[in-house]
């Protein structure tokens, strides 16, 4: 097992290298660069020499392999460099937002798990009854509703109900505080985006839980469990759910990685200073270095989540053994 973990960790290196090359090349295929956008972005006349000097300073005129070498050297020395747009330290810029994005991703995943597994289970047990229909409608709605729209509705709902009940409208705070400083304040800000995105992402998982559980409930070993006279609750919890969790775990793993960098619009709605917003801004300004590091961050999380999911598989299903 430990040998397997080490092997997997080593195998991550070529994957990450491949991703680094891909992002590096793709960014440079897009016409224009940060200097053009910075100086000539608004259409005014700019001395081409000034742009040239800017490029010179940022190293954009260096041969491509030199530039790439610098990126890789940066990884080896744990130096992510500075933003081409703002000139600020990238580690610092990402660090500022990473905590928030990570927390929202965790909370949204938690919300999704808390919704998906119980609802999917009930829906499967009560297949084709009104309970099942209600759950399925609820989860279809989650897929159909964009989470930013749900976010806007949540904010509106909060404003209206608080005004109606307490006389004063209340809105989630806009400034991020660390949960270690002020947990209540932190949660009162982040619980709403977590619910908005978690609900959407629970929808897929609810349906997956329902369908795999239905499949498992038809297995011979569930019939064996029934023939033993066990309680239905025990049959579901002990015999069926663990078997049904494999595909659901995969969904959670993939979605989590997406949540780290993909919540662009939701961040906008709730005024969160997260990675998604930074991502879009950096792409707009052709901030090569920043985009490179942001994509790599998501790639690292993705690869790591996949690895984690594989380990979870082995824990859930003893037939899966890694060597």
């Amino acid at each position: 097992m430990y040998a397997y973990i080490i092997k997997r960790l080593i195998l991550m290196i070529p994957t990450l290298f491949g991703a680094a090359v891909l992002v590096f090349v793709l960014m440079r295929l897009v016409p224009g660069d940060v200097c053009e956008i910075k100086m000539a972005g608004d259409g005014a006349f700019v001395d081409p020499e000034a742009i040239e000097i800017c490029r010179q300073n940022l190293g954009l005129n260096d041969p491509v392999y030199v530039q790439f070498g610098q990126v890789i050297w940066g990884y080896l020395t744990f130096d992510l460099g500075t933003s081409m747009w703002t000139g600020r330290d990238i580690t610092h810029e990402i660090g500022l937002r990473f905590q928030l994005s990570l927390q929202v991703a965790f909370m949204a995943t938690l919300v999704a798990i808390l919704i998906a597994i119980p609802l999917g289970t009930i829906s499967a047990i009560k297949q084709d009854t009104w309970i099942d229909y209600v759950v399925r409608t609820f989860s279809i709605a989650g897929i159909a509703m964009p989470s930013f729209w749900l976010g806007i509705m949540i904010i509106l709902g909060l404003l209206i109900t608080t005004q109606a009940w307490f006389g004063d409208p209340w809105m989630p705070p806009i400034v991020y505080v660390s949960p270690f400083e002020d947990l209540a304040g932190n949660l009162s800000q982040l619980i709403w985006p977590a619910v908005a995105t978690g609900y959407r992402y629970s929808a897929v998982a609810t349906r997956m839980t329902r369908s795999t559980l239905l499949e498992v409930l038809r297995e011979d070993y569930v019939r064996t469990a029934r023939a033993k006279g066990l309680l239905e609750r025990v049959i579901i919890n002990r015999h069926a759910l663990k078997n049904a969790m494999l595909p659901v775990v995969t969904i959670f793993g993939i979605e989590f990685a997406f949540l780290i960098g993909g919540l662009v619009v939701t961040e906008q709605v709730f005024n969160l200073n997260g990675l998604g917003k930074l991502f879009v801004e950096s792409v707009e300004t052709s901030d090569f270095t920043m985009v490179q590091q942001l994509v790599m961050l998501v790639v690292v999380i993705f690869v790591f989540m996949n690895f984690l999911v594989d380990l979870l598989y082995a824990w859930l299903d003893p037939r899966i053994r890694y060597a």
């Binding site: 011979d220 070993y221 019939r223 002990r238 015999h239 663990k242 078997n243 299903d317 037939r319």
Partner: peptide, 8 residues
């Protein structure tokens, strides 16, 4: 083969 629960 299938009547025993594989994960218990």
């Amino acid at each position: 083969m299938t009547s025993l629960n594989p994960v218990l």
